[in-house]
Design a protein around this nucleic acid. Structure first.
Lengths: 243, 243
DNA sequence: GGCCTCGATTGATCCGGCTCAAATTCCAGC
DNA sequence: GCTGGAATTTGAGCCGGATCAATCGAGGCC
């Protein structure tokens, strides 16, 4: 075997356990992989998706991270989600075939692209892919609904704790340290995502630091007491958590 | 033609322009109709879906209305959505095959039921149905994401205005009066849905009344200045609206 | 290394919506 | 129509997070 086939394909991609092919058979993964185009590396701040444009493809983060965001009429920015490697972005475009948010690289970003046309054609013959697309959309819907409840019922610290715990878990699934990581997004982005101001995020983080639950050095975070954070978070232990 | 075929089927249902078959061909609608079971009438407070149970069907409201809701660990209730005739409930169950919220009748309710197994089998051969399911999930996701932004960026009045304007539009699509209607949900339900307290909802409604924008008599609402409500709402005119 | 700019922290004050409490209205059942 | 209980409205006071403002720190560039 020469050097020819060391190219990344879904089958031998390190993310395959996390990414779209996670629940597909080897055969379906192979077929899907044939429709996946790998994009060149984008630099920080680049826009991979632009709100208002036709949704002609699904994008998956391959390395780096991104935020799905936009701007209100009055100029205020909002952040719908952060995307880590293996996460699919832009699903809400299925609503009417147009994107409603930008997708912006938070650090140098590599990505995969799957044309919607080819995806729909593959769904005709691949039942596993059909099921996976429904699962993916259902999961996004569930996550967003849960988040909506959280924003309206949980206080600033609880929301920041949830955010850190959720991020920690997602990093862990990617074989990165769940307790020692670097935030690729600014305090401002975190605030916009959680429905807070950056000052409040900073203060909450300060409170966690003073409590000895985290170590904070700029964007470098060390979780010293993830159990305590879980305890006040929504997704997990806290008294306001979903049953 | 005897009385035999006056039975409701999707093809001759008054809701067909709004409901799942809205974008299906006549042929696909006919096939889908064959898989639709019509449930008997449920009375107010009945639970059509129970959180934690297996998702074995999709439910569509045929008449009446429902709320999708649940209870947090500490006993607080939350309300994810209200469902009007023609609206599909329980889509988030696609995430892992289990429901995560209850669906409770707000008034006497009739509904249709479509088994997930049959739906998946039909999706194999009906491309329009495949596309429609993706559209439906995408739309739910978009709506929920928008709502999440709204809860975190818009004040109480703005949120209540959005709620009224949205309800008004949904009623209008059903050929009901967009300006004169009865709320099937309590102030408490509205509050839980908008992330407010019932007192705040009541006060905001009072403010609209004093401003001459609405007439309120218990649950009967008359919108006198829907334009003004739109003006401060999120979905539409307000300065904080999405572009 | 040193400067410069942007991001983050910290402080002081203010306000919208929550909480607790009471009065009022609505509606179901006689 | 009357009545009891629940839903709604209204009021008073408080508090968490927003706002405004100043300082501090970090990373990029020369």
């Amino acid at each position: 075997m020469g050097t020819k086939n060391t190219e990344l394909s879904c089958g031998n991609c390190a993310l395959s356990r996390i990414c779209l092919p996670a629940n597909l058979s080897a055969r379906e993964t192979r077929i899907l992989a044939g429709a996946v185009e790998r994009g060149r590396e984008l630099c920080t701040g680049a826009r991979l998706i632009r709100a208002g444009t036709r949704m002609d493809a699904l994008y998956v983060v391959r390395s780096g991270s991104a935020k799905s965001c936009g701007v209100l009429k009055d100029g205020e920015e909002y952040v719908r989600a952060f995307n880590l490697p293996g996460e699919v972005a832009g699903l809400e475009g299925f609503a009417n075939g147009h994107h409603t948010s930008d997708l912006v690289a938070l650090e140098p970003l590599r990505y995969c692209r799957i044309s919607i046309g080819r995806l729909e054609r593959m769904m005709e013959t691949l039942p596993g892919l059909r099921r996976e697309m429904l699962r993916l959309l259902g999961q996004s819907l569930e996550d967003t609904q849960r988040m909506r409840i959280e924003v309206s019922m949980v206080d600033a610290r609880g929301r920041l704790a949830s955010f850190l715990v959720d991020l920690s878990r997602r990093l862990e699934r990617r074989n990165l340290s769940p307790t020692h990581f670097r935030l690729s997004m600014s305090r401002r982005d975190i605030a916009r995502h959680l429905g807070l101001t950056l000052e409040t995020v900073s203060r909450a983080l300060g409170a966690f630091r003073r409590a000895g639950w985290v170590e904070v050095k700029a964007r470098h975070i060390k979780l010293l007491r993830p159990d305590m954070l879980s305890g006040i978070s929504f997704q997990n232990g806290g008294s306001r958590a979903l049953l």
